[in-house]
Design a binder for these strands. Structure first.
Lengths: 211, 211
DNA sequence: CTTTTTCCTTGACCCAGATCAAATCATGCC
DNA sequence: GGCATGATTTGATCTGGGTCAAGGAAAAAG
């Protein structure tokens, strides 16, 4: 009933519109949910990190294309048995509701980012989000000097942020030039002061994560 | 345990950060959830129409400001008894999960709208969304000639779409000039051909609502 | 080691939508 | 009616980020 699947960076895990006979959770690595307009414009609409849930119980057709942005390992369950288990286990349903509500909150922060933030603020916010989620896995809060791995291409970042890859590149290098971040290679970011980065992100100062 | 509350257009129902000791659902009218950056930039992150749920079980502090965009009637429950009921009624929890997943899907369509659509496409998409939701309440699909009520100011529309109110006004009048929509007063829109409006919205032709 | 491919950076230019500034319209109030 | 008040439209101008076009850099392939 439970099994593992691995994908390499760039591989498509599920195509939007395909039959989807499993649900799963991310063990390691990263994947993006994307939506497209027919002319090819692409927007990432979900970012899956370790512990995140993939799939929608009660729905057999995938609504979004899921692509591995880095090497990734999923822990999968066949959908039918999972749904049976879900119906029999109120605790599991509650946990899933909790996770879905958290995802909805994250999506709403993302709406604010896409609708109202400048390119510079978008980049800073994205790094803040990654740092927070990376720290949260270790039950911590990011603070002071902090390093973040970017398991995405500039293009994937652009699709996340509603920008072009050129703008992402320019803003990353501007932030670097101004000392807000340091780059170690192209995919590793050092944040000298997490607090300063939060200011750049335009967020309300307290940033209160409620849970 | 159950009671009704009414608000006039423009009234704030809940302030972000306030204690929130009730949950509710919309009986009639419309409200918006909004988030703000400290410099005042505002983004609507949720739109509540009749039958929509307000509040988050298990959370006593409101994360978003809720404002009535039109006269509105809510059916409210005190939070504690509701949570008790929720814990005792697996069916209710399942229903709530279903609604939350639908909201998440809507939020993801909204991400695509904010991240990648032009102002014209945003306006058209918004009208398509309103028409679909209005029709859905009558268990129908919008088709052919269709009328939509806009219980929002141009500014509220701008906050929904990540635009300025001037751009909203201009695009509405451009669509009117081109015959894609007709305006009856400022708050009522006639859609001569729903199918043509969907094309203007940039959506994938089929538009498949999966449920 | 060389070549190919993929990803990233940088520059020059342009345009959709923002900003600033006036009108116009609609509605309620005295 | 005459006069505030708030919503909307319209015009003029500006600009952030998009688009187009080369180049680099680094990994993968041969």
């Amino acid at each position: 009933m439970k099994y593992y699947r691995s994908f390499e960076a760039g591989q498509v895990i599920v195509w939007a519109g395909d039959q989807m006979d499993f649900v799963g959770s991310v063990v390691s690595g990263m994947a993006g949910l994307t939506q497209q307009l027919e002319d090819g414009r692409t927007q990432m609409v979900g970012l899956l990190l370790p512990s995140d849930f993939l799939g929608r119980p009660g729905r057999q057709i995938a609504s979004y294309t899921v692509t591995a942005t880095s090497e990734i390992v999923l822990c999968c369950f066949r959908r039918k048995p999972f749904e049976k288990l879900l119906a029999e286990t109120p605790h599991l349903a509650g946990r899933l509701l909790e996770m879905t509500l958290d995802e909805l909150d994250a999506a709403r922060d993302w709406l604010l980012l896409l609708g109202r933030k400048s390119a510079r603020e978008k980049i800073a916010s994205f790094l803040v989000i990654l740092a927070r989620r990376e720290a949260a896995l270790a039950r911590q809060r990011p603070k002071g000097r902090f390093a973040v791995e970017l398991p995405l291409t500039r293009e994937a970042m652009a699709d996340y942020l509603g920008l072009t890859l050129e703008t992402v590149s320019r803003q990353m290098n501007t932030l670097k030039r101004e000392g807000v971040i340091e780059l170690e290679g192209k995919r590793r970011v050092i944040i000298p002061s997490f607090e300063d980065l939060v200011i750049e992100s335009g967020e309300d100062s307290d940033g209160g994560l409620p849970s």
